[in-house]
């Protein structure tokens, strides 16, 4: 047994780098794949729509923990020799893409039909309608739930500990095992999570203000 020391804080911060890395992979990968899935989900091709729907249902209906297991052990069994980071990255990308796609689809569908009619009547293509009329309005609606979900992701990365990933939460657990001082240890862990998540919420607020610039009230929906 030993005391909780500043050295442990350094250990926790080092572990937090993995949390940040995995979160970043989930944000970027999940965001890109999520955008593709959103597009497929509202596509005019019913095959694409059904594929995206199945993909989203599957990933939303299974525990993230199982997805991480499958990405790690399943892909290994299938003959892919991948590290824990890559496996977790794949699992989190898939998981985030499904939820982001649903959030974004909902935001896009919340834009009233007359906006589509008004823009198509000017001769716009579907892509132009999206780009100039629908998405700019949907962004405002999507921002709060998107940021809320990203904050969840940061915290959910702790699940990756299951495949041997020593992230922030896991490091806290290990340090508590040798110090038996749960309050300072997990208090510090919680504080670090907060420091990671709080800027996201701040950025969201700033972005929301910018999107509403020049307007008195939020968009009518």
């Amino acid at each position: 047994m030993r005391d909780f020391s500043p050295f442990d804080v350094v250990l926790l911060l080092q572990a937090a780098r993995w949390t940040v890395l995995l979160s970043t992979i989930a944000f970027v990968g999940g965001g890109l794949l999520g955008a593709v899935m959103t597009w497929m989900r509202i596509s005019r091709s019913s095959a694409l729509r059904h594929f995206a729907r199945g993909y989203i249902l599957l990933l939303q209906g299974t525990p993230l923990l199982m997805q991480i297991f499958l990405a790690y052990f399943g892909l290994a069994l299938a003959g892919f020799d991948i590290s824990a980071v890559v496996a977790a990255g794949i699992a989190f990308t898939a998981y985030a893409s499904a939820f982001l796609a649903e959030i974004w689809r909902g935001s896009i569908e919340a834009i009233p039909r007359p906006q589509w009619e008004g823009s198509v009547s000017l001769g716009m293509t579907r892509f132009e309608q999206m780009r100039y009329v629908i998405v700019p309005q949907a962004l405002r609606l999507a921002l709060p739930p998107t940021v809320g979900f990203l904050v969840q992701i940061v915290k959910n990365t702790s699940l990756a500990a299951i495949i041997g990933f020593t992230d922030l939460a896991r490091a806290g657990q290990l340090i508590n095992n040798v110090t038996l001082m749960p309050f300072p240890v997990f208090g510090t862990v919680a504080a670090i999570y907060f420091v990671l998540c709080f800027p996201l919420s701040l950025a969201s607020r700033a972005l929301e203000r910018r999107l509403h610039a020049g307007r008195q009230r939020p968009a009518r929906v």
């Binding site: 007359p114 906006q115 009619e117 008004g118 823009s119 198509v120 001769g123 700019p136 309005q137 968009a219």
Partner: peptide, 21 residues
């Protein structure tokens, strides 16, 4: 080519359908 046709035909709706953003 509806894109082309719709440039020739303007339409004004009951509820304006302006772009609020």
């Amino acid at each position: 080519d509806l894109r082309r046709l719709r440039q020739e035909v303007g339409i004004v709706f009951q509820h304006y359908n302006l772009f609020p953003h």
